[in-house]
């Protein structure tokens, strides 16, 4: 039943978006189940990709399974479009699909990301694909999957609360600053991929569809639009995000995640937006001539 669809053969010898149709079908089924069971990690037959494991193979497979010729793709790593891994992945999809790519969050229909959620609020109809290194939030507490699977089945997350409470006892607050645990739809404990906890609130009731792909670990999970995502906390120690004493030194933003850039060997530093598109858009608005 192989049909030769020459229009679909962008890169010679490879199917549209690299993956064969059977693999895409298997991933698509996993994605639908992931959407139906928010926060639950659906096992899938992750394929060996031409990029190394740990470098976004899960996100790439999810994107490859959902991308169509009319999509506009944005790829970021650390919030930025121009880090080498983001460039490489964007190039991979440009070569294998021929779709339009963009750096503008608002223009994109699909955003593949590593470690950040854009500052510009996402809208209904957009899909954000997270690259996930370790999908299992309970892994550091219990390395055996046979056990963590039971804990998820029973919704038994006491161990996670104990761990966080021990943090409070030791440090006076919860020590996790990224990869901060969340409960999705008041049921599943979920690892938000290592985004800084600054980004956690953006997951809550987000209008966009959020998909998570872990290639090496062979899991896909999802947060549908308008779904409750609660960062774990305690009544006497409510969840808080990081705040900076500085504004972005390029665009003046006070509401964005800031990267600390070392300027010289005497420890001179400056703080700039990690989201390069957000920063640029703000600067363009302030000084249209410069753009």
């Amino acid at each position: 039943m192989r049909i030769s669809t020459s229009a679909a053969d962008t890169m010679e010898g490879y199917n549209f978006a690299y993956l064969d149709e059977h693999t895409k079908r298997m991933i698509r089924r996993a994605i639908l189940k992931a959407i139906a069971i928010p926060g639950y990690q659906v096992p899938f037959g992750s394929r060996e990709m031409p990029l190394p494991y740990g470098w976004g193979t899960g996100g790439i497979q999810v994107t490859a399974a959902i991308i169509g010729p009319d999509d506009v793709l944005k790829v970021i790593d650390q919030g930025s479009d121009d880090t080498t891994n983001a460039v490489n992945i964007r190039r991979f999809f440009a070569r294998t699909t021929g779709v339009k790519t963009t750096e503008r969050t608002g223009e994109a229909t699909i955003i593949q990301t590593r470690h950040r959620i854009p500052e510009t609020p996402l809208r209904d109809g957009q899909i954000i694909v997270y690259q996930v290194p370790i999908p299992e939030m309970l892994r550091w507490l219990e390395p055996r999957e046979a056990e963590t699977r039971k804990m998820h089945a029973l919704g038994e997350y006491g161990a996670m609360h104990v761990k966080l409470y021990e943090d409070i006892a030791h440090h006076g607050h919860i020590a996790a600053t990224y990869d901060y645990p969340v409960i999705v739809n008041e049921r599943y404990l979920m690892r938000p991929s290592p985004i800084p906890k600054f980004d956690n609130p953006k997951m809550h009731m987000n209008p966009a569809l959020q998909l998570f792909g872990a290639g090496r670990e062979k899991r896909i999970y999802a947060v549908p639009p308008y779904t409750a995502v609660r960062s774990l906390d305690f009544e006497d120690h409510p969840f808080e995000t990081q705040r900076w004493e500085h504004a972005c030194e390029l665009c003046g933003a006070t509401d964005s995640f800031l990267d600390e850039v070392i300027m010289d060997d005497r420890g001179k530093r400056m703080f700039v937006c990690s989201d390069s598109d957000y920063c640029l858009a703000r600067r363009e608005k302030q000084q249209p001539a410069v753009a």
């Binding site: 669809t5 079908r25 639908l32 169509g68 010729p69 569809l209 549908p224």
Partner: peptide
């Protein structure tokens, strides 16, 4: 008619429906 492009269109409609 166009296996690759028809199925992605249908899948996106399904995913969109499942997400809404």
């Amino acid at each position: 008619e166009q296996r690759v492009f028809d199925s992605i269109k249908v899948f996106r409609a399904l995913a969109d429906a499942m997400a809404h």
